[in-house]
């Protein structure tokens, strides 16, 4: 399953939390022209470094597909950051 929602939360200087919800599918659709350019750039980079471009792209895609469920939460002193992928 591809990631649906990325949640980022961090604590501001005044101690209040700021949250950001990123719906992945609409953002990917919105940025698809740029992503296409990025994919082409990636393929060129793979060819430059003697890497199999499609296998590498498949590997990157597999990582993208495996992201749901990941959660990173760090809190130290006044700093608090949370990134969660659902």
């Amino acid at each position: 399953m591809i990631p649906q929602l990325v949640t980022a939360r961090w604590r501001r200087k005044d101690g209040r939390y700021r949250r950001l919800f990123l719906p992945v599918v609409p953002i990917v659709l919105l940025l698809s022209p740029l992503l296409l350019l990025a994919v082409i750039g990636g393929i060129i980079a793979c060819l430059m470094f003697d890497l199999p471009p499609f296998k590498t792209l498949a590997g990157v895609g597999r990582i993208f597909w495996a992201l749901p469920g990941a959660r990173f939460e760090i809190e130290q002193g006044r700093t608090a950051v949370l990134v969660s992928v659902r």
Binding site: I63, A66, G69, R71, E73
Partner: peptide
């Protein structure tokens, strides 16, 4: 005080 809570899917 430091708190770290990381959950990484094994698939990843």
């Amino acid at each position: 005080e430091t708190k770290v809570n990381i959950r990484v899917p094994l698939k990843l």
